[in-house]
Amino acid sequence: MIRLIATDLDGTLLQPGGVLSDRTRATLHAVDADVVVVTARPPRFVQNLELTGTAICSNGAMIYDLTNREVTHAQTVPFDVVRKVSEALAEVIPNVGIAVETGLEVLSEPGFQGFGPKNPHRTLELLDHVFEEAHQVVQMLAWAPDAEVDHMMEIAREAVGQHVSVTHSGGLGLLEISPPGVSKAATLESLCNTRGIGKDEVIAFGDMPNDLSVLGWAGTAYAMGNAHPLVKQACTNHAPPNTEDGVAQILESLFRL
């Protein structure tokens, strides 16, 4: 019995361009199960999707109530760790630029060019100014020009993995760095425990390495047809790609909609 659906957004639930299709929206409203969005995105990117329920944001660092539009929980990276990680990455990744997600906005040094126009952020003159202005850090972002992100992730994990959690969602040369021990799966497991839901009652969908923790924890896991090779290798079940409403197709079949 499926009691909870955990789904990533970009490349999984959403069509290209961040669109939630009418078919997928109708399917999510029709299923007899809790729907939990589990994404690297911060709350401000999920609040206009016309979904209700819960969103686990910033790769597990934040829990957002979609119905009441409020953050109910946040885990932060201590500022001494932020500085230590920034210095360590600068030593091992050429031309790396650092940004921080505060939960309200992204602040970056000038060398960070990891976002396009659809992901606005505020650039400050010096990295020290970023640290001074950020009231908290729920996620760090590290970007390097022309870097191969899987290799970059390996280097970063070796350099700073004892201090933080490092992953990525497929962006060119863009790493996502969370508080130590924080992941999508850890936060989802805690949420399920409060609701009395076991992992065998959870079905999960994802497409990128930052989804692997959830896909490995859930009782049933689907890699999208457009997923990263590591994700496809990790999952026995494969859904059609997001461009074909793959999540909706699987749920329609399982719930006989």
Rank of each mutant, 00 (worst) to 15 (best):
L107I: 01
A90R: 13
A74K: 08
V46D: 11
N119L: 14
L124Q: 07
V164F: 08
S86Y: 00
G116D: 10
L124T: 01
E87A: 13
M153D: 06
H163V: 11
V130H: 02
P120V: 10
E91Y: 00
P120R: 09
I93C: 01
L89A: 07
E50W: 10
V82E: 02
L141R: 03
G173V: 10
H151I: 13
S169V: 13
V46A: 08
P145W: 14
P120C: 04
G116W: 00
G170W: 06
T67F: 08
E50D: 15
L126W: 06
H168G: 06
P110I: 05
M153G: 06
Q162F: 09
P120A: 04
V96A: 12
R69K: 15
Q136A: 08
A134I: 01
T52W: 12
R83Q: 15
H73N: 13
M152P: 08
V130F: 03
E132Y: 10
G60W: 05
M140K: 09
G170P: 05
R122G: 00
L174D: 09
A88H: 10
L51Y: 07
H135W: 12
L124H: 01
H168L: 02
E109Y: 05
H73P: 02
L124G: 00
N68E: 15
T54M: 14
Q47H: 15
T102K: 10
V100C: 07
A147R: 04
V85Y: 06
H121I: 00
H151L: 14
A147Q: 11
V137F: 09
G161R: 07
V130N: 01
G103Q: 01
D128S: 11
A134M: 02
N68M: 07
S108V: 01
T52N: 15
A74F: 05
E132L: 12
W143S: 09
E109G: 02
L175Y: 05
K118C: 11
V81T: 14
D150K: 09
V138W: 11
D150G: 08
F131S: 03
S108G: 05
L89Y: 09
V81R: 13
Y64T: 14
H151P: 02
L175I: 04
M153A: 15
L66G: 03
D150P: 06
E132F: 06
T52E: 15
A144V: 04
D150S: 12
A156H: 04
Q139W: 10
S58M: 13
W143Q: 01
N119Y: 11
F112N: 00
P110V: 05
R122D: 00
V96G: 07
I63V: 15
V71M: 06
S58A: 14
F45M: 14
T67G: 13
I155Y: 08
V96Y: 09
P94S: 11
G97N: 03
E70Y: 02
A142W: 01
E101A: 03
V137L: 02
G170R: 09
V160E: 04
S86V: 03
D80N: 13
V96M: 05
Q139L: 09
A159T: 09
H163K: 12
V106H: 11
D128F: 01
E105I: 03
A99G: 01
